[in-house]
Design a protein around this nucleic acid. Sequence first.
DNA 1: TTTCCTACTGCAATTAAGTTGCATTAAACA
DNA 2: TGTTTAATGCAACTTAATTGCAGTAGGAAA
Lengths: 127, 127
Amino acid sequence: MSIIRKTKTVKLLLKEFNKSNEAISVIELIDKFNKKMDKTTVYRILDRLEDSRILHSFVDQDGLKRYAKGASNTDFNNEPEIHPHFLCEDCGTSSCLPVTIQIPDIPNYTIKSAEHLLIGRCKDCVS
Amino acid sequence: MSIIRKTKTVKLLLKEFNKSNEAISVIELIDKFNKKMDKTTVYRILDRLEDSRILHSFVDQDGLKRYAKGASNTDFNNEPEIHPHFLCEDCGTSSCLPVTIQIPDIPNYTIKSAEHLLIGRCKDCVS
DNA sequence: TTTCCTACTGCAATTAAGTTGCATTAAACA
DNA sequence: TGTTTAATGCAACTTAATTGCAGTAGGAAA
Ligand SMILES: [Zn+2]
Ligand SMILES: [Zn+2]
Ligand SMILES: [Zn+2]
Ligand SMILES: [Zn+2]
């Protein structure tokens, strides 16, 4: 958990995440802020924000890293929890889902964490 | 679903998958067969085997593609199903898990498919 | 306010996974 | 055995992510 300086670039990224609860891919952020900061800076700030548990990340189906608000193993009320992530196959938007997924006991395996990626249509894309 | 010729390289890869039920990363395969075939060939054969539903794939935590025996949306008895994948954080081995994970109904979202990656320790690595 | 420390940034170069184009090779089948 | 065309190898390329380093700017302390 590193100390984070409130630099202009950090503020810009935090503002972006505070706009909505969506999970944003690094690529989108690099593209969006290509006039404001270098891609290296984007990667490094996201890294630090995740270390500080201000953001959490997951890897989507295409192998791209996505970030969203909050710590990974707490829910929206800060209770420990693993939550699934949703990805709309139509519009590409992604978000954390405030539901709990039950993992059955599996003999011979000790499960410590899990990544759940649900793919489908968001409410704006159901045709 | 393309027709697949039984070339030497295809046979080599199939033999590897028939050795065990593990999910193997493309990188491992490229490395293992670097004397026997080009990496392009590995990628293309895996592609075809997945098209033909002989293998299925998923993306692991590091964004690396992994392949395992069987079609993705059928279980070991060929019944339609989504199964989770396991990754041992200790030895790095990965496998399909023959259990069913229940996805709760989520208002405003239509879920079509899911990827479940469970991380922990396999039976050989519990200390 | 000014000074100082060092976290942070930008840039260029590099790594690594995966893809593409094309000439050549070898399965498969009549 | 010859013909067809799927499949291969190789080189070049694309894209996401990382690294090294010199220079910049937070922010604490004087
Ligand atoms: Zn949508
Ligand atoms: Zn989340
Ligand atoms: Zn293990
Ligand atoms: Zn599987």
